[in-house]
Design a protein around this nucleic acid. Structure first.
Lengths: 340, 340
DNA sequence: AATCCAAATGCAAACGTTTGCAATTGTGAA
DNA sequence: TTCACAATTGCAAACGTTTGCATTTGGATT
């Protein structure tokens, strides 16, 4: 059926009786070519299942139309490549990139290479890099920025950086989460997460601000540090209750997955949610509303965040500088917390 | 700091005082080149942040070292690009591919192009295609196979196909799931999912086989058809209980997400799990063990599945034929079901 | 020394596009 | 008919690698 030696521009040109330049221009919809010839050639190409060789055009144009997306996992925890929130961001980025005619090359920070700029940009595997997550160390990211490669990072925009960071207003998120619990009547609110992590630390700040505003004393013992995984949260809350009893009536969790782990620990001990303890998460992953009770949470708008990230990356392709940007967060009040 | 006109092979060659051929071979670790020269040149390359231009080498070698992974979403349902199970498979594929020196180009079936073979392979964007999910229609997949492009599909291996399918033993999975509930004493077991979908249909077959083996009558009214999303499952079970009362004491759900939706519906009506109703899921996504009660489920081993898929794809790169393969499933008995 | 063979390196032609510039065609005005 | 000028099209040189083949180098053997 199919002629096996692949059709090239030259072949198609011969078929049509025109030059390769004309076919090339026609397929790229260049108005230099008369409209009828353009359409004729495009039809001919489709008819013959012809598709431009991207390797060749990338070589010639020095442009790949590919963006590398790097999942910046935290090495020393169990935060896996399967973290639902991170993967949600990947999915949304995929949509946003496709919409702009770019493709997504997926990688993660556990791969061999450390020199991202060199590996992706210099090698012309991609035109730009989007890093998901600042992690605890940002040195690899800073190297990319220093090399001048187009770069956007998902993280906390309030953290000063010499590269564009897009992310939620984490401080505000922490604030309204805590405020919500206070309004619901919680007296002893625990903060559950990893305050050393960039975004989480901002959430913690907001948490403290809300407490202060309500005139509460800030008790460091109420900040429970744990890795941002369900399992770690489950274990933390379990041992906490076991050793100290139920000394709190509210939990601000730094992510929905953390909240999930905490909820399980509570339920196992027959602690009523929200009767005895109110809990609020962060992210609003798909699962949140399907938990029982449905999880109150602070929603991160990953869809528009993805669009903003892509937009900022495209600016850099045009030589314009990119800016950090904050996307709105929103309180989603569900059943896991008492309402005012 | 950095010289802005990019260093090329030729430039590096001049720097080293050798020919481009030598540098090329050295960087590709070709034993034709004396070991010392090789190491010297590799060191020089690293020193100068040199990286081979992939566009050029892909053009020359006609090989990309890229694999396109396509999320084959079901258009007319809400199964989103954020489905945790599908994304888990993507994550595992990413690992498996990287291990073999390949990169992952992520796409989904909602993008513009329909002719995957043409778009990815002919255009030399990728060397092969992995499709995740057979969906309800397999025409696009069959086109790829007909075009002779390297292809592996995640789906149900029992479905006859002229391409390599890797997947779980879904029939057996459905069987042991149902058997588990029967052993636990369930009398009226409901099957919840979409029996038209390839993989789910196999699970349904296994379900029926288990019932038959236990000497139960197979009542079609106990097969509840719904889209494979949590939301659909939640709604289905809710209205079912509302209109017909609690006429079942066991649920075989076709995925963990479906199970999650069902569990929520049950809990809202104060149906005890597993006291009144036992429930078993499918997949074993991370969240399953963190639900309350922890979800009994049939685990799909996506990690080794990903490895098998990559292996089968690489066979095709070498001109060898690929075979469909079945990966083992495993019953993970947790708290959402009564045990024998 | 001369010779031979293997080891190491270099030459130059691809790979399939895109694009500045030159060349051709078509159109209307003089 | 001739000319000027715009609209189309074609020529040919890149883009940066890889690789078959020719060439050089370095020992070891006569």
């Amino acid at each position: 059926m199919s002629n096996d030696n692949k059709l090239t521009l030259a072949g198609l040109a011969k078929l049509a009786g025109v030059s390769t330049s004309t076919v090339s221009r026609a397929l790229n919809d260049n108005p230099l070519i008369k409209k009828e010839t353009r359409e004729m050639l495009q039809a001919l190409a489709k008819e013959n299942n012809f598709s431009l060789n991207r390797a060749a055009s990338r070589l010639r144009t020095q442009k790949t139309n590919v963006v590398a997306v790097i999942l910046n996992l935290i090495d020393d925890t169990d935060q896996s490549i399967n973290d639902p929130f991170l993967l949600k961001v990947v999915g949304d980025l995929n949509q946003a990139l496709n919409q702009k005619g770019y493709e997504l090359l997926l990688s993660n920070s556990l791969m061999a290479t450390d020199d991202w700029s060199n590996y992706f940009i210099n090698s012309s595997r991609a035109d730009g890099i989007i890093v998901i997550g600042q992690g605890k160390s940002t040195s690899k990211i800073e190297d990319v920025a220093a090399a001048g490669s187009p770069l956007v990072v998902w993280g906390d925009p309030k953290v000063a950086a010499n590269y564009a960071v897009v992310g939620s207003n984490n401080e505000l998120g922490g604030f309204i989460a805590t405020e919500h619990l206070i309004d619901g009547g919680c007296q002893n609110i625990v903060f559950l997460g990893d305050p050393e992590h960039a975004e989480m630390s901002e959430r913690h700040k907001g948490h403290c601000r809300a407490l202060a505003q309500a005139g509460r004393v800030i008790d460091n013992n109420l900040t429970l540090s744990c890795d941002i995984t369900s399992k770690a949260a489950y274990e933390k809350i379990s041992t906490e209750i076991l050793t100290k009893g139920l000394y709190f009536d509210g939990i601000v969790a730094t992510s929905d997955m953390v909240a999930l782990g905490a909820m399980k620990a509570l339920k196992e001990r027959y602690v009523s949610i929200p009767g005895d303890v109110s809990i609020i998460g962060f992210d609003d992953i798909a699962m949140a509303e399907l938990l029982h009770p449905a999880l109150t949470t602070v929603k991160q708008d990953t869809k528009s965040a993805a669009e903003v990230m892509v937009e900022q990356l495209l600016y850099q392709f045009q030589g314009k500088p990119a800016k950090s940007a904050i996307v709105d967060i929103e309180l989603i009040a569900r059943k896991s917390s008492k309402h005012a």
